[in-house]
């Protein structure tokens, strides 16, 4: 391996943060729609099934947020290790959160 750069590319940083936020959003939406039936009904009516709507919402959020964050300078100044830690922690919290939510409720 050669001498190393210490920053991430613009898209890599922006979409990395977007992926972490989307993971948390996904778990939050799963819990809220489960607890609040009217929201689930609205999501059912949008794409035929609330799960399909949630998948599409996740993708739209990831792409939209990724494009926005890729153009925000502040995101690129975040230390890469902090961004990696955020992404890993977000996925871990979101994953365990899903399991805990359905395990308890």
């Amino acid at each position: 391996m050669t001498t190393d750069a210490v920053i991430l590319g613009r898209s890599s940083a922006g979409f990395g943060m977007a992926a972490g936020i989307t993971a948390l959003f996904n778990t939050a939406l799963a819990c809220v729609k489960d607890a609040y039936r009217p929201l689930q009904n609205v999501m059912d009516s949008i794409a035929g099934n609330n799960w399909t709507t949630q998948g599409l919402a996740d993708i739209i959020l990831f792409v939209g947020l990724g494009l926005i964050l890729s153009n925000i300078r502040t995101v690129q100044t975040i230390k890469p290790d902090h961004l990696i830690l955020f992404l890993v922690a977000a996925v871990a919290v979101a994953g365990v959160g899903l399991f805990a939510w359905y395990g308890v409720f």
Partner: peptide
């Protein structure tokens, strides 16, 4: 759905110069 988003992100992350960037 989370795995799907991570899978969509992976090709974006690999666009960086991996051989030249430890962070990437």
């Amino acid at each position: 759905l989370m795995t799907l988003i991570l899978s969509f992100y992976l090709p974006i992350a690999t666009r960086d110069q991996l051989h030249a960037s430890a962070a990437a």
